[in-house]
Each structure stands twice: as structure tokens, then as C-alpha cells.
Nucleic acid binder design. Sequence first.
DNA 1: ATGAGATCAAGAATTATTCTAAATAAGGAA
DNA 2: TTCCTTATTTAGAATAATTCTTGATCTCAT
Lengths: 147, 147
Amino acid sequence: MNHEDHQEETLHVGSGEFRMTKQRRVVYDVLLDQRDHPTAQEVYSRAKRRMPGISLATVYNCLDTMAQAGVVKQVNVARDATRFCPNLRPHAHFLCARCGEVLDVDLKPTADATLAWAMPEGASVEHLEVAMRGLCPTCASQPAQLV
Amino acid sequence: MNHEDHQEETLHVGSGEFRMTKQRRVVYDVLLDQRDHPTAQEVYSRAKRRMPGISLATVYNCLDTMAQAGVVKQVNVARDATRFCPNLRPHAHFLCARCGEVLDVDLKPTADATLAWAMPEGASVEHLEVAMRGLCPTCASQPAQLV
DNA sequence: ATGAGATCAAGAATTATTCTAAATAAGGAA
DNA sequence: TTCCTTATTTAGAATAATTCTTGATCTCAT
Ligand SMILES: [Mn+2]
Ligand SMILES: [Mn+2]
Ligand SMILES: [Zn+2]
Ligand SMILES: [Zn+2]
């Protein structure tokens, strides 16, 4: 008794498959628990609280593995460091110029995001990434910049 | 006679203004002459052919100045180096996964690119950047990967 | 011509990310 | 179990894009 359970589940998700190791579990939970689109560095900070020995390289590896497998999404907003997101619905990202928050913006139920664009005839779109910048509802309702 | 004309025009465009110096002229012409969304490094290579003494730092400075002034646009596609584009119309960018070409995709005349998205109530969008990945018309019509 | 401020140039510094190589852990077969 | 093969983790070096620093040079208006 008291033998540790070293059984790891193998997940088959999206395109790839991967083993859900302890480190990957921690990294994934970090993303699930606070959905604010952290960078790899930020994920590393949070992961260390749960697993002090985890390394930054491993965090990068885990994020990359899960991105490959389609379990998390990489989010590129402007030139900043890549952010990560466990929201698998088709969605865009909104960066608030004032408070820095990154919000998910869902695709409307029946909408087609490419419809507004004059796609070249014969092109096939595999992937679409939309980044918006502006003022989030909270900041937009604020009086003015007191700074 | 034979006195060089050192008069520089001051351009007022978009948000800012700036002097059109020799270096900035060269950098801008590079963008106008080949509209393939080159990176800063690529702009530097091309600029050196016209002005051998120009420095990479200056190319970065020029691109930044003109981007600030709104004369050129910075284009972020995936994690690659920033690309630059003198097309001021509202447009998206399409990266061909096969040949690497970056194409402009115009916004349809009356279309609103945010329409497909369920924007949070009260948010104001100042800026929107759309990056698409897929196969360009040429590559899409190709038989199959012979590699 | 002169002085203030803008611009340029060279190289150092920064930062995110990837790579390398060695140690460790996991899963399967015997 | 024990042994073997392979996947994963780790620390640190390497890379690459970009920014910063500093001094030289240029421009424009006196
Ligand atoms: Mn998201
Ligand atoms: Mn363009
Ligand atoms: Zn905000
Ligand atoms: Zn192509």
C-alpha cells in the first residue's frame, strides 16, 4: 500500500497525442485556473508555486507540446512575448491599451470571420488570428487618464 | 552650380510628422518598390544596394519613425520578425504555408471586420490586426507536395 | 558662421526563445 | 521484479530580433 500511482494517462486531442506528465498537468492547470493569457515566464512563476523544481525549459516544452497537440493556443498580440490560452473555441483577443488585460472575444455563433475580407480567388485559409487593441469596458467607462 | 540640393521636405502624415531624410527616403522606396512585406533585415539588405553606408540601426530607426507617423505599417505574422508594409488601406495579411509569400487582403468596401466577433459591451476598438495562414492561390492549385 | 536639436552609426545590451547534452523517469518485455 | 528503449526533464549555452547608449554628423533657423 502507499505505492505512488505513476500511471499517466495518454491524451488524444486534436491533431496530436501526448502523455499527461506531472509537469504538463501543472502547466495545464495553471492555464485553466487563471485565464488571463499568461506568458511562458508567467506560467513558469505560477507553476513553481505548485512544483518548485520545475524548470523554465520544461514550461516551454510543455506549452509547446500542448500547443502542438491542440490543447492550448498560442496567442500573439503585437510584439509581446507569446501568451497561452486553454480556450479552444474560435475566438479573437482584445488587449486593453490602458490596463493591459487580454480578453477573449468569441466568434459569433454563425459568423464567418473571413467574410469581411476580399480573399484572393483560390486561396484556402487554414488558420486565422485576430488581435484587437483598444479600451476594455472597464477602462472605457473610466473618467479620463488621471495620470 | 553643382551644389547639392539638401532641402528636405517635412511630411505631415497621419498622427505624426517627420523629415524625409536621405535614409528614410531609401528605406521608404525599398518598401514601395517591392511590396512583399520584408523584415527589417531584408529592408537593410535592399537599402544597402542603394546606400551602402546605411546602418541596420538606422533602418530600424527609419522604420520605427515611419510606423509612428503612420506612413508604413508593422505586420506581425506568427512569431516571425516584424515585416513592413507601405499599404495604408485597411487590410489583413495572408501567409502562404507553402511558399512563404505574404499577401495583402483588402477589407471589403463596406464591411466591418469586428462584426463577426461578440465584442464585450462597452469596449472600444482602436486597432485590429488579422493574420491568416493557408495556401495561396498558386500553391493551392499545385498538384501535391512533391517533397 | 553658430548653436540647438534631430538624425545617424556602431556596437553593447536585452529578452524571448531555441538548442544541446546529460540526467531522470516511464512503459514494456522477459 | 529487472533490463532495455524511449520520452521527458533540466540547466545552461546559443541564437536572433530588437532596443539602448553614446558620440559623430547633419539641418535648420538665427
Ligand atoms: Mn484566448
Ligand atoms: Mn500589407
Ligand atoms: Zn482595461
Ligand atoms: Zn504559396
